[in-house]
Write a protein that binds this DNA or RNA. Sequence first.
DNA 1: CCGGTTTTGGCAACCGGTTGACAAAATCAG
DNA 2: CTGATTTTGTCAACCGGTTGCCAAAACCGG
Lengths: 356, 356
Amino acid sequence: MIEADSTPDAESTLPVSTRGARRGRPAATIYDIAKLAGVNPSTVSRALSKPGRINVKTEERIHAAAKELNYRLNPMARALPTGRTNSLGLLLADITNPMFFNVVRGAESAASKRGYTLLLAESQESSEREAAAAERLSPSVDGLVLVTSRLSDEEIVELADQRPLVVINRKVHGIPGIVPEIGPGIEQALAHLGALGHTAIGFVSGPVNSWMNRARWAELLERAPALGMTIVEIGPGKPTLDGGAATLARVVASGVTAVLAYNDLMAIGLMRAAQESGIDVPGKLSIIGFDDIFGSDFTSPQLSTVRTPLGAIGDRAVRLMMQLLDEDAGAPPHRDAEVALVTELVVRGSTGPAAH
Amino acid sequence: MIEADSTPDAESTLPVSTRGARRGRPAATIYDIAKLAGVNPSTVSRALSKPGRINVKTEERIHAAAKELNYRLNPMARALPTGRTNSLGLLLADITNPMFFNVVRGAESAASKRGYTLLLAESQESSEREAAAAERLSPSVDGLVLVTSRLSDEEIVELADQRPLVVINRKVHGIPGIVPEIGPGIEQALAHLGALGHTAIGFVSGPVNSWMNRARWAELLERAPALGMTIVEIGPGKPTLDGGAATLARVVASGVTAVLAYNDLMAIGLMRAAQESGIDVPGKLSIIGFDDIFGSDFTSPQLSTVRTPLGAIGDRAVRLMMQLLDEDAGAPPHRDAEVALVTELVVRGSTGPAAH
DNA sequence: CCGGTTTTGGCAACCGGTTGACAAAATCAG
DNA sequence: CTGATTTTGTCAACCGGTTGCCAAAACCGG
């Protein structure tokens, strides 16, 4: 049997670090290519990044040399003079909330399609940690995308002063943001509950510093009375299963026959807590969540919920970021009008006729 | 005659890009600090990164100046000469598989604790895309972590030749890897099924190029006969809800009374398909999944599953990577023996007495 | 064949740090 | 107080690209 580990002595003559490659060749540079192709390094740089600037014949020769040396551009070396890193920072409130999966996927695929890389950080629902993470990511990226940020408006504006920034699920004055239209989904949800005979509704609210939480509540508050319904806020609570479960006593005490919860996690938590207490869902209590996360159709009954086009939101956010970056680079403001990001009610089993 | 190069605006005097900051100051450098503190830039560099190398008094002065200018180090500028980027690449097979959430969280928190940043990419279960993503990430990171890689052993070895690399859920000769002990969980699962009277077992298998899929199957194959059980492989299939559902006909046809599925997603997919076909779970068919992902306790019945310590695995993987990097930098091989990553059966509702 | 225009490629400075080598200053031993 | 030693800070080169400027080369119409 052969030992994979060879003696490290040969490496001792190498410079400071093994740079680039660990064992293999020390990674080709444009200087190596230049030597091989018999031209100046700057010509190589141009051939590789400014197609057309160089004579076709020469360009070919350079490309051939690059291929032969298995050249890959050093992103750091390029970033230093240009200031462009070709990467985006994505800051999430809580990685384990399935809501983020689709946002991340949408963002990742849009980014990698444009040759951008995603740097990821999570704040675990803490604004301090989020600020720290933003601080850490900021110098290494071209732009920052904040998903469901827990930062204050002021902090966000300050951050946007350093780097192009896009917020998701939030509106901050002067900051580009991607927010789905919550109106349609909420309208449908209320209409649905109304048709089932519910007149006393509750809103199980999430984190106070969540913009989306306030937006949903505001929308409900505005629309419910017009439909002849009463509505009360129950919360705030943590946007988790436990957070939802914890509101059960208050929900019961409030006398409402249906609730909308800030998100699916809370809705499911509440539903399970209710069932454990012998409260039938939807027999005694109808529950509607928000987002339509993974697993919301696993429950029994399956959760009725207001679906948010999470993947599309992630995609749109990075495309918007690309536009901002292009504009910064001098391109025309091409901000194209895209299809709307609309929410819609998905009726499943957790809503039923009001018990009276 | 007008100068060919008539100045469009004040910006033309600026360097290439607006570098660093968008609106705010152009971001302080060690040169600014040096000027302010009245020392040489190299002294600033040392004061900031080699504590003790510089006179305490001077160091203080420099730190004060740095703080005053709100200095932050430019990661790219540091990475260029040192080759160290202080970031790790994390490559996932499928972001939307909840299995990865906890791995990512574990990895992210371990990384950010050590001042490292995570670069994320997903391969969407495609080995070509995975190779491309690895290629793209590789030059910008100090190390690569492959989670449930779909690459061939050869490709992985080749990748490891360029960068320190750690694989999760896989063993490749000569490549450091983090793999949970699947033995205990499987032993418990089989014992559990045996106690319930099951003698004909099925394994709903996942992707052929998944090492973990083969490992689980091999373990089952070895242990089942010794327990007086027959076992058959049903698959391969995609590691998704649909992939699991698609195996229903074959599961039924095989005559087994219990199955273990490659992962929870397939298990849940199969369970739902079975229920839709009027097959009672666990009355007619017992089902056990793997991993204990988010949502596996949402189903009805809740899924019995072999839990994998996913968060701990992510954490361990980046800590192992840190050790590799430290060693590369000349530190002693300190590879400490950690607590084992053991799997265990979580008995819930999807398993019951064999119907015969 | 000539002067003028356009292409093409080289030169050199620069991005913002790091580090080996070295000299000046401070400290110490005798 | 002197010479040896240690501490401290400066100099300059370097990492690997990018780009403004310029001169040489190629091309053009007449």
